[in-house]
Nucleic acid binder design. Structure first.
Length: 478
RNA sequence: CGCGGAGUAGAGAAAUGGUAUCUCGAGAGGCUCAUAACCUCUAGAAGUUGGUUCGAUUCCAACCUCCGCAACCA
């Protein structure tokens, strides 16, 4: 039995889910379903990142406690996961007491091994970014991303993580594992970054200034910086550092581990987190899949331009599987992609309404009429596109099968044969039902609801009463 | 010379040192099982300038444009 561990990045809960989250989550879900379908035992983790200055500020603004605020947000994210049919096995929350204890245990382990030290320093800190800023990053003495916000001068003792000591080991990790980061150009990017030299960084904050964090073990005056805490969730989900580490042993130590993230998270996951694992004496992640970003109309999405894509609105209008289809087929695996309502509508009509939906109807209608049932299920030939994160290629393969069926129907014209040679028509339909079966098995991890509907229709041997993908008007308001 | 990515028909992608492929869209024809669906055909493309080569979209160099990152973000 193979064991496969998969995790999304935990979104920071200072806002609602946007299309980037939807893409990462949906793809992770496709992989989880794919690997389950291959017979692997899968542990699929997702959740929410709930500590830090921005969240504390937001709670004050809303006049609620931080815990009440993150509870509310976490529920929103769980709803989002339900909306997009996430088959997760565990929902991590970084304010969970078990997670906090594990984050402390990881801290202790890094500390015991000599990779955490205390240092006093002064720095400029942007509350908007929740980051210290170097002078080179500032524009006119202000943070370029938050020009309205005054920078705070921080003069304090913090704990530092000895990141710089991991340069050689990280480079070894990258060199020895050519698919550690997928795609390869991101591996190149992180290699260049690490080769350029690493600086130790602060991993704690004074509690009196920022209390919304995990307490630093053995120091009541400090809490952990949100990154140290959040990254730990990848193993806290598996119960590492608790009495029962069996899932950690099974999935992290002995299984294959995959983390999904956007390109903005490359450093955190492929360098910082790996160094943390090394510092604690734990095995590294096996693979990190790094996605591109989505732009709309050629521009970065922003509320002021009004080109923000709301994935849930698409789900409501076109249906969940239409969105999952678009994500798998038309959002580029690793490059940035343009997502417009025009493109979405086009591909919905062409490939789902006129493609898959129509094919199901014409095949099952004839099968019904000519009384052909599929008695022998054909063997599906497994492909490894999804194992290699090639969503686009897998979808093209499946839609080629759909096109081939349409072609076959035109060429063989069973609807004509049926008039004077029924057995010949029935033979054609047996083949078509077999192909439809293969197509349906192939889309199962991508479009699980549609898979179920086609499965039922094939069992009844009747075309679905409701169209799988109804013909819809173009809706520019999405 | 901070790092990385991308420039291929109207749109999105792919492959390739030798006829540039696919999907969508457009135009024409065909078909009638099907959700006015399906099939065929047609038109339509390599950022610029050099270099290597018998031959370059592909390899090399320079340049231009766009995007992202630059210790917040999927």
């Amino acid at each position: 039995m193979n064991h496969f561990y998969l995790t999304t990045t935990l979104p920071y809960v200072n806002g609602a889910a946007h299309v980037g989250h939807a893409i990462e989550f949906m793809r992770a879900d496709m992989l989880a379903r794919y690997h389950r379908g291959l017979g692997s035992q899968v542990f699929f983790n997702t959740g929410t990142d709930e500590h830090g200055q921005k969240i504390a500020d937001k709670a004050i603004e809303l006049k609620v406690s931080p815990q009440a605020y993150v509870d509310d947000m976490a529920n929103g994210w769980k709803q989002f996961c339900a909306d997009i049919n996430m088959s997760y096995d565990f929902f991590s929350r970084t304010t969970d007491t078990k997670h906090e204890a594990i984050a402390q245990e990881l801290w202790r382990r890094c500390d015991d091994n000599g990779y955490i030290y205390k240092k006093s320093y002064q720095s400029k800190y942007c509350v908007g970014c929740e980051l210290q800023k170097t002078d080179s990053e500032l524009v006119d003495g202000m943070c370029p991303d938050h020009p309205g916000k005054e920078l705070e001068l921080i003069d304090e003792e913090n704990y530092f993580f000895a990141f710089s000591q991991f340069q050689e080991r990280l480079l070894e990790l990258y060199k020895n594992n050519p698919t550690f980061v997928v795609p390869d150009f991101r591996l190149q990017e992180i290699t260049n970054f690490v080769a350029g030299g690493l600086q130790d960084f602060s991993i704690s904050r004074l509690k009196e200034k920022m209390s919304w964090g995990v307490p630093v073990p053995g120091d009541d005056d400090q809490v952990m910086y949100v990154w140290f805490d959040a990254l730990t969730n990848y193993i806290s989900a598996l119960g590492w550092g608790t009495e029962d580490q069996s899932q950690f042993d099974t999935f992290w130590d002995q299984g294959h581990t995959v983390q999904m993230c956007g390109k903005d998270n490359l450093r955190q996951q492929s360098a910082i987190w790996q160094a943390m694992l090394m510092a604690a004496g734990l095995p590294n992640t096996n693979q990190i899949f790094v996605e591109g970003h989505v732009v709309s109309g050629g521009q970065k999405m922003s509320k002021s331009i009004g080109n923000v894509i709301d994935p849930v609105a698409y789900v409501h209008y076109y249906g969940l599987d239409a969105v999952r289809y678009f994500v798998a087929r038309h959002v580029h695996d690793v490059q940035d992609s343009d997502w417009t309502v025009e493109r979405f509508h086009e591909s919905y009509m062409a490939s789902l309404v006129n493609g898959l939906g129509n094919l199901v109807n014409r095949v099952l209608n004839m099968a019904d009429k000519y009384e052909v049932v599929l008695d022998v299920m054909p063997q599906t030939e497994p492909t490894d596109h999804l194992a290699n994160f090639q969503f686009n290629a897998e979808m093209d393969r499946i839609w080629k099968l759909i096109g081939d069926c349409d072609q076959y129907i035109t060429d063989e014209a069973p609807f004509k044969k049926a008039k004077d040679d029924l057995p010949a028509a029935q033979e054609d339909l047996r083949y078509l039902l077999g192909q439809l079966w293969i197509i349906n098995e192939s889309i199962a991890p991508i479009m699980p609801e549609t898979y179920g509907k086609i499965r039922v229709a094939m069992e009844l041997n009747k075309k679905p009463e409701e169209p799988l993908f109804p013909r819809l008007d173009f809706n520019a308001d999405l």
